[in-house]
Design a protein around this nucleic acid. Structure first.
Lengths: 255, 255
DNA sequence: CGCTTTTATGCGGTTATTTGCATTTTAGTG
DNA sequence: CACTAAAATGCAAATAACCGCATAAAAGCG
């Protein structure tokens, strides 16, 4: 029985325990902190309101650790992404060194490369590595490191350092937001350095962005938008949305 | 029998298992989670209503059967390998550092680890990394390098060097041949150094070998057989075949 | 310090979920 | 068509969640 004086302290301990164990059981917490289950329930619903955990019958669970894994994420846009990927893949030429970042869109690119492309691909995604294994003439370099289970990529310092060992012809970014002034943004802090490395180690920098990501802003700024050399997006996007990017010299392709 | 306190937690685990194994059997789940089949059925229909799986007579299937790729080389031995993998997975304990080499058998181990195992796994196989991503409490370290498309692993000098940075509790080898005198052998020269590294950086060394690989000799010698601490093989293997290994102090398990 | 206000907590009563069991219905199989 | 296993249904017990309300400690204040 742990003695806790501050209610807020108790809640923070509960969050830590959630991260450690992956679940919280109301009855156990009540025992553990020596307070009634009502109090625990109140704590949990407060934390749930704050968006820090998911309330379930009997306790709480993490928001979505690997619940909605990656390859099941918006399947609805599958057709669109496939179109974009096809357009993206037409940018690569034989004998290039290609960097491919993580993300559902970039994985789609890996599946849509020309079947007899002769090239070397460097990737941080095990899924992309598997897709590429089907190509007879593509050399695959897998960048190692700790796997981020949410995004299914290696995105730690080791991976970033490894990326900096390459000087690529072209790279494909999976980005969370692209805005003319704010720039390229990401929802994951740990990916920021990695994406920066991808951009800096590559001649051409291609972002394949679905319509909803154009003009979107995610919490973490990766780089100014003029670092991109190509943007590939949907046909339906109006020209005035694209004009600012074109004005910066970015080649915008609609597929 | 996994103890689950939260109903919602059980459902999420079922979803993860579905993604790992590609199917769910109601009767098995009932056994596994220690609840009645009624409860399992209710869980499944709830998940089906939420559009997370497809309900079928006797259990459930993924919505998109071909979404999670099945790179299984020989499906014929699937059942056997699954048995061996289950026996192998019982050797791991919580909080261990585990090395897993490449191969179809070792991939099967990755799919059959205890569902709530808390451990760190180092692997050279992107496929294994993907399988492990379904485990909430397993930390995955992907060893990078050039991908060997035949075996779907990284097996170059870079990968070998990286493996040598770890001191693991246990490692699982995918081997091509095990012979009492000739030792552990491989059909791929480039894998030899890597497998040696796996053996040397690990306390326990486990080889899961189907019957046809016992006594088999492949072209390249990796290490003497006494480097193994455990051999896991099929039930049908006669005792006289296993005696030489046991005489060397290797623990032989038949599953 | 006295006083009020806010916050945190526990308790009783009620409602909602979950679960297992018995029974009936349906689906798969030869 | 008959047999078996799985699914659906109704029901009751156990447990968790919810709703006020009372109490008490903490905080704010003249």
């Amino acid at each position: 029985m742990v003695v806790i004086d501050l209610p807020q302290e108790r809640r923070e301990m509960m969050l830590r325990e959630l991260r450690r164990k992956g679940k919280l059981v109301a009855a156990e917490l009540s025992e553990q902190y020596g307070v009634s289950e009502d109090t625990i329930r109140r704590d949990l619903s407060e934390l749930a309101d704050a968006g820090l955990l998911k309330r379930v019958h009997g306790g709480a669970l993490p928001l979505t650790p690997s619940n909605m894994p990656y390859y099941e994420r918006d399947k609805c846009k599958q057709a669109v992404k496939s179109e974009l990927a096809l357009a993206a893949s037409s940018l690569v030429k034989d004998n290039q060194l290609i960097l491919i970042g993580g993300g559902t869109t970039t994985a789609e690119i890996a599946r849509n490369l020309p079947i007899n492309l002769h090239a070397t691909v460097v990737t941080t995604s095990p899924l992309i590595a598997l897709y590429l294994a089907e190509y007879a003439r593509i050399e695959i370099i897998m960048v190692g490191g700790r796997i981020n289970k949410r995004e299914l990529v290696t995105s730690d310092a080791e991976a970033t350092a490894k990326i900096r060992c390459f000087q690529a012809d072209i790279c494909f970014l999976g980005v969370c937001g692209v805005h003319p002034e704010v720039g390229i943004t990401s929802t994951l802090y740990e990916e920021v350095d990695l994406v920066r490395a991808l951009i800096e180690q590559s001649g051409e920098v291609v972002a394949t962005v679905t319509a909803d990501k154009l003009g979107a802003i995610a919490p973490y700024i990766v780089a100014p938008v003029e670092n991109l050399t190509h943007i590939i997006t949907e046909k339906q996007v109006p020209q005035e949305t694209l004009a600012p990017y074109r004005a910066l010299g970015i080649q915008v392709i609609q597929a």
